[in-house]
Design a protein around this nucleic acid. Structure first.
Lengths: 213, 213
DNA sequence: CGACAACCGGACCGCTCGGTCCGCATGAAC
DNA sequence: GTTCATGCGGACCGAGCGGTCCGGTTGTCG
């Protein structure tokens, strides 16, 4: 879709687009979603107008980058499944670990998980399908508490994100991470049925998007 | 300190101060920390200048209100202890439930717990002392996993806050709350020693405040 | 090489927010 | 009732944001 028909972009334009994307990734990782467009353009060595020629709005850039995140998460899920074929709980644990690392090293992703940015519906669908896959071995082995659903795992990533960031901009030292991963994972494993009702992020995003439209 | 020596405030001034505080409480509850000063003044039926005559800065108002929060939390802890004298886990559970309710119904408090606002050192100390008290019965009864510390309970409140707010401004229906409370509480209860190291919020706030000064 | 379209970037706009200023109103003391 | 310090609020300021405009530049193609 980026370079389909019509004549291809001029060489400098294409190069600048790449630099903008890279600069945005770095800036968002460090400063979170609300780094200014000007800051991103400056890092890319480009004028603000050049930015807005590529992306009609800042939101459009965020969406473009979010697609990368989705791909990365899905890749991590595949890897977690491949590397833990012997341990039923392994993929889920590896996925949650990956989520903690990502949230720790990418402030914008953290905020996305904390849902300050509501992603397009189909991206949430893709992520949640992956979540379903990563928890399946544990469920099949009967390790998960009866009633644990994909929404619970999604919530677990949010809980872990909140756990490793005690204060604005301050990250818990990595030595503390296993502690909270262990707490959450212990809470999902066992025989006691889950109480209450589960919430499904896909349904929520759909509802939210519908109400916004 | 508010009305010590010097001559007392004029009657209208005192009345307006009270209205500002009340309006701020409501506005912060609904809109979070970043409702504008103008909005607060408008709700109080007062000019913006009147606001800044009472509080040198918006931050000063936040601090003043945060003291109320601390008192309320400590009150809830006392109540949780008093009403659950028979159940060793009861006070801790009641405290976490209270924390969920408070975070759900008060957006500003949520953000405070998420540490977008870093409170003064001594307030954190008072809160954490209360946390220590509320977990003591469970610890004494040997219900808590070896190594669980007050920082873990503090983290638990943050995790639960993240769990009940799936997306910006959207609250999970209350039917889902027990589910996540159960997950977290299950993760803190048992025989397995806690892995990793614990983090202490008091130390962190101290460190943070020192680095900011 | 020449010409043109695509592209560039800095100046600019409109908006919001925290915070200030100043002319006017008013409660309190006599 | 008179006086005046205290308090009042709307107009104002400067900074920073997302987004636009236009005169100059540059890649590309014949």
């Amino acid at each position: 879709m980026t370079s389909s028909n019509a004549l291809p972009m001029r060489a400098d334009a294409r190069r600048n687009l790449e630099r903008i994307l890279q600069a945005a990734r770095e800036a968002f990782a460090e400063g979170g979603m609300d780094v200014g467009v000007e800051e991103i353009a400056r890092r890319a060595g480009v004028g603000k107008a050049t930015f807005f020629r590529r992306f009609p709005t800042k939101e459009a850039l965020v969406t473009a980058l979010y697609e990368d995140f989705v791909d990365e998460v899905l890749g991590a899920i595949d890897q977690a499944l491949a590397e833990n074929a012997d341990d039923p709980l392994g993929p889920l644990r590896a996925f949650l670990e990956h989520s903690m690392r990502t949230q720790a090293h990418n402030k914008a992703f953290f905020e996305a998980v904390a849902a300050r940015y509501v992603p397009p519906v189909e991206m949430t669908d893709r992520i949640m399908d992956g979540v379903e896959r990563v928890m399946e071995p544990a469920r099949a082995a009967g390790l998960l508490r009866p009633g644990v659903e994909r929404g619970d795992v999604s919530t677990a990533t949010k809980m872990l994100g909140a756990a490793i960031r005690p204060m604005e901009g301050l990250l818990l030292c990595e030595a503390a991470w296993p502690r909270y991963l262990d707490v959450v994972l212990s809470g999902l494993v066992g025989d006691t049925p889950m109480p209450g009702v589960a919430a499904d992020p896909c349904a929520m995003v759909r509802e939210f998007s519908a109400s916004s439209a």
